[in-house]
Computed example of a mutant assay.
Amino acid sequence: MIMKNFFTILGGMGTLATESFIHVLNERTPIHSDQDYLNYLLVNHATVPDRTDFILGKTKDDPSLAIKEDIQQYSHFQPDFFVLTCNTAHHFFDKLQEETDIPILHMPRLAVEVVNQKFAKTSGKTRVGLLATEGTIQTKVYENELMKFDNLEVILPDATVQQEVTNLIYRDVKENHFCNEELFYQILQQMTEKYACDVIILGCTELSLVQEFTQNKKYPVVDAQSELADETIRRALRNREEPEKKAT
Rank of each mutant, 00 (worst) to 15 (best):
I55A: 01
Y195Q: 06
K174G: 05
I169D: 00
A196T: 09
Q117F: 09
L110M: 14
D50T: 00
R234L: 14
P79Q: 04
T166K: 13
L209V: 06
L207N: 02
E244G: 00
G203R: 07
G129Q: 00
A224S: 15
A17V: 13
S208D: 09
A229R: 05
S75I: 12
E242I: 15
E145F: 08
T18S: 09
V141N: 07
K121N: 10
L65Y: 09
T100F: 13
P79E: 05
N5H: 14
V173I: 11
E175P: 00
L228H: 01
Y74M: 11
L156T: 07
R240W: 04
T100R: 00
R28I: 04
V128I: 06
A17C: 14
C204V: 02
Q190W: 10
F149A: 05
I71V: 14
V114H: 03
N176M: 13
I200P: 00
T133L: 11
C86W: 05
V83G: 07
G12L: 15
Q97F: 10
V128E: 05
T139S: 11
V221Y: 01
I55Y: 01
S226E: 15
P49V: 06
F119K: 06
D198H: 12
I2T: 15
V24W: 06
K194I: 10
C204F: 08
S123Y: 14
P49K: 10
A111V: 06
Y219R: 01
C204Y: 05
T85D: 07
P103K: 03
N239Y: 04
E175T: 09
T160W: 05
V199A: 01
P30A: 05
F77M: 12
I201Y: 08
F82S: 13
G135K: 00
E113H: 13
T122S: 10
L41G: 02
P220G: 12
V43P: 00
E99S: 09
D50K: 01
R240E: 08
K194D: 12
K58W: 04
N144H: 15
D150Y: 11
E143G: 14
L131I: 09
I67N: 02
Q138H: 12
V173G: 05
Q190P: 03
Y37A: 02
E113R: 10
Y185V: 02
V221L: 08
G124M: 12
L228N: 01
N116T: 04
C204S: 07
E98P: 02
E113G: 03
Q138M: 12
V112M: 07
D223A: 03
N26W: 04
P220N: 07
R127Y: 03
Q35C: 07
P243Q: 08
L156K: 13
D80M: 07
Y37G: 04
R127F: 00
T166S: 12
E99A: 15
E241A: 15
D70S: 13
L10D: 15
E19N: 13
T29P: 10
Q189C: 01
A132L: 07
